[in-house]
Design a protein around this nucleic acid. Sequence first.
DNA 1: AAATAAGATGCATATAATATACATCTTATT
DNA 2: AATAAGATGTATATTATATGCATCTTATTT
Lengths: 149, 149
Amino acid sequence: MRLTQHTDYGLRLLMYVALKNGQRCTIREAAESFAISRNHLMKIANLLQHHGVLNATRGKGGGLQLAKPANTLRLGDLVQTLEPDMALAECLGENNQCVVTSQCLLIGVLSDALHEFLRTLNQYTLEDICVPKQSELRSLLQIELVTAE
Amino acid sequence: MRLTQHTDYGLRLLMYVALKNGQRCTIREAAESFAISRNHLMKIANLLQHHGVLNATRGKGGGLQLAKPANTLRLGDLVQTLEPDMALAECLGENNQCVVTSQCLLIGVLSDALHEFLRTLNQYTLEDICVPKQSELRSLLQIELVTAE
DNA sequence: AAATAAGATGCATATAATATACATCTTATT
DNA sequence: AATAAGATGTATATTATATGCATCTTATTT
Ligand code: SF4
Ligand code: SF4
């Protein structure tokens, strides 16, 4: 059982954007800071923008910003948005061929556990995983905030 | 996020064996009842035997039996045994290259959620997902118990 | 208007994980 | 010796995932 790299990259990107404190950041910049594929991150940014989590503006001076305050973005919801597929077992996805589906008691147990997993994640927001260590994280990611004048 | 088919097949096999009520069953028989790959199921049976969940005896009249009572086999433990890998994110597996690992607060949140997932599964045993629907399941799987004489 | 800097999109490819098949070996029973 | 079962190792197929590339659109600046 693992989350796709896609999902983790998405969360990393959101952490990056949140750590910029409202200042726009480009995808290129985030990809370089994390030393990960820019192309890949592009698609993730796009997905998050379509889901109303990120605002993306094109053109010179453009970039990404959070579409909502970091303390309203719950991690369980973000994981559900980012994961391509949360079908734990065959019967929970498409093309189910399992012969015991109609009477299987395991389905409910698995759904229950998945629910607890997401519920636990939803006890935390993007803010919770950024703010307490913001200076350390900014340093690791070489984020320098431009001070207003 | 999904469990491998491997894991679900393992649980199906255990359900099958449990529904036989102590009577031996062959892997072939279980594979046919579920209409799934016999070769695949063989490896799973072997894994479970090595982990002390199943007893396997070879030769004519041989087959599988539960190594422990069904009500002592907790689903969370079984899933952990069957899943090849529970590393939710890059940093929880091998070859981690994530640059923020040393300060990342997400790791703890993910571990927490995984723990809740397994804890929830461990509230149920193999017995819990078999006995309440045993006759219906036996019928779907064409299991006919030989009555003692 | 042109140049440039950004994201958007679609297609192709590479890689890795997973599932499946096949062949052969071992063990136990009859 | 024959047969029925599981054990094991290797090879292959399939699928999911990750990555790369080319082109397009949008916005800003000059
Ligand atoms: S065994 Fe139960 S949980 Fe697994 S695929 Fe079949 S119906 Fe779903
Ligand atoms: S971002 Fe955090 S959780 Fe994700 S791989 Fe890096 S250290 Fe692990």
